[in-house]
Amino acid sequence: MDETMGVGGRGRAILLLTVLAVLTVPIVVGYLWVIISTFSQRTYGLIPVDANGHPGGLTLRNWSFLWKDAAIWRVTVNTFVLAVGLTVGIVVVSSLAGYALSRISFPGRRPFLATTLVLHAFPSVTLLIAIYFVLRWITHIPVVGRGIPVIGGFGYNTLGGVILVSVALELPLGVWLMKGFFDQVPWDIERAALIDGCSRLRVWWEIMLPLIKPGIAALSIFSFISGWNSFLIPYTFMTSQEKSTIATYLRSLLSDTAPVNYSTVAAVGLFQLIPVMIFFLFTQEYLLNIFSGGVKGGS
């Protein structure tokens, strides 16, 4: 007997696992190839081969970009700044708004909630064209536009601008999730804190945030991964090479006019994927939670 909800013999479990395995083949094969190819001169299918097409040709040369191409570290730092910026932005803004929407009765609360929910389902990519104009406009604002160190500012063709857009577009999801997590905190605890002498801001900071740590962790992981991976927004709104992120750098490797060295591209890809994978391994349970948690709030 298996320990899941189903009942049935060991035989059936094996049958079902086999079906699952077959369905999952493309995923496994794809990632297998990524790993193999980064250590090969080239690959024929999944088989590493040398320049003449004979099996063999294992090499570390594909990884030489790590020490030969200074650009990779620059784009890595950019990507990291983007991911961290997105995470911090999302967590701060949505935990503030989520708290108010979940816990405070104020005029306009219901319209706010309805808006959040509509935006939650709203296809934000359709707005990229208009956001382009908004960013160009922000660029003209002194200092804020393009005069801030590290992130460059919040205008067009700055890291800050990309962070801001990403935060905004992920905000409805974040707010809705945070609201869901705040909803679960017992009212009596907050009441006790108010009676003990807290203002609402203090309750939020000293009592509520510590209590929804798992939710914050989940949202942070989710945001970090999505920032680390994000392609479309940096690709659309950052044109200069030196500000690009790993994803756009990768894209530029692929679309260069010179013949593409796929093994190198795969290595850069794996380089981008590794932190996410490690992250994922340790936090997959949180992530699985966020998706299902999001639905409890959203359905």
């Binding site: 990632y31 991976n229 392609f231 795969a266």
Partner: peptide
């Protein structure tokens, strides 16, 4: 959770 560029390259291959 895979970067989209890497993911598509995988399918290309």
């Amino acid at each position: 959770i895979t970067p989209s560029v890497v993911y598509i390259m995988m399918w290309n291959y």
